[in-house]
Design a protein around this nucleic acid. Structure first.
Lengths: 223, 223
DNA sequence: CCCCGATAAATTGTCAACAATCCGGTTAGC
DNA sequence: GCTAACCGGATTGTTGACAATTTATCGGGG
């Protein structure tokens, strides 16, 4: 999730820190981002905050209105689904590309992650499972070697992290998710591009469906 | 292609103008972007140029090295293919979504564009054909109503515009391309999601293949 | 009691000056 | 003749001050 390892007191450093604060929920949607405040809080110049906000605006995590300042962008329910669907399309392609390029070393890495995931689910350690999840998807992107897709997925995921906890905590979800992930890993290790893409598609379709339900439930349940 | 209609002498204005200059090839790959120069040329403050460069960096059109300045990012052949493939994945999904939402008015618009395209090819007006092409893809994105995907496609396309002329000028390409587009339009008007996705996939697969050949030819032909 | 205009505070937008850094050629030393 | 320290120009990085704009506050009239 760490994107650039720059000195924390520089422009790209403050960008990374702000991005982190937003994705982790320390800065809540629609919260105002006052340049002077942030500059003081993070101990940097206002100009740095300014360029950081410009970049995060370009990235879609922040909205800016002329002479009115910046605020954390609130993504609507509809938009969350858009993001999930777009992610599905890209990640399915990535899985296909990964299957075509997987090496013996990659297979070993994937199997290690698989074992780790199984252990996490068996031990009901959902935080660990979530980390494994991220590691696996990251590894698949690495194997695919499509840096363009990887960058886009990084951005999309930064919008979804807050929402995905609603899904992973649903009863029975970890077990289902584990099975889906194992299918992906199996297809990748066989180098079967069609199967890998299909498995990834099934996995993320299932995720998207649950996300949709979670959103609908929250809208009706009313909180 | 115009993204924001802001006053041309402001930060987002200069960003748009620089983006335009890069995608149109007025600023060539690896060309140095000296802040003071650009500020003078566009009649704005250096700070504006600075934030514009930061945003274009985030967008991937520009690379910046600390204390060394910015230059137009040169995309490698491999990266061009990555972009084309990623675009394919997203645009296929968009076509599917558009098919599910198309209205009577949309159908009419699509047929109008189709007629325009046919006329352009018949008259061998390839500039006009290229514009129709962009209009059609834009219209499909609008119908799909997936703003997330639309934004990503916008960015990806800004990297491809320089390359696509190599493909469209190949002998016989306009005719083939026209047929592919008509298949897409037909499927959309029927509201057939599977067919629309498949047609779009065929179209962009064909484009990607030709792009690959054009790249290989340029590499061997040697210029 | 509510609405409206004037004033003040807060915040962003703009700008120019200065400091730090890099890149070229140049010169001193071996 | 060659290497290495070194200087000067060019360019970016940083900072603070000031202008412009929006938002909140307050007082007076309807």
């Amino acid at each position: 999730m760490a994107r650039r390892s720059a000195r924390p007191d520089t422009a790209s450093g403050i960008t990374a820190r702000l991005r982190d604060a937003i994705t982790r929920g320390r800065l809540t949607p629609n919260e105002r981002l006052v340049e002077a405040d942030l500059a003081g809080r993070y101990g940097v110049n206002r100009a740095h905050v300014r360029t950081a906000l410009a970049m995060l605006d370009q990235e879609g995590l922040v909205v800016r209105e002329r002479n009115r300042g910046a605020r954390v962008r609130a993504i609507s329910d509809a938009e969350a689904l858009e993001i999930a669907e777009t992610r599905l399309a890209i990640e399915a392609m990535v899985a296909r590309q990964a299957a075509a390029r997987v090496t013996a070393a990659d297979r070993k890495t994937l199997r290690t992650i698989e074992a780790d995931m199984c252990a996490a689910v068996a031990g009901e350690d959902y935080s660990r499972f979530s980390r494994c999840n991220a590691t696996l998807h990251g590894e698949i992107r690495r194997i695919a070697g499509n840096s363009t897709a990887a960058r886009i997925l990084d951005t999309l995921k930064s919008h979804l992290v807050r929402l995905q906890y609603r899904v992973i905590l649903l009863p029975g979800r970890p077990q289902t998710s584990l099975a889906e992930h194992r299918a992906i890993i199996g297809a990748l290790c066989k180098g079967d591009a069609d199967a890998a893409e299909a498995a990834m598609r099934r996995h993320l379709t299932s995720f998207t469906r649950l996300l949709k339900h979670a959103i609908a439930a929250a809208a009706h349940g009313g909180f």
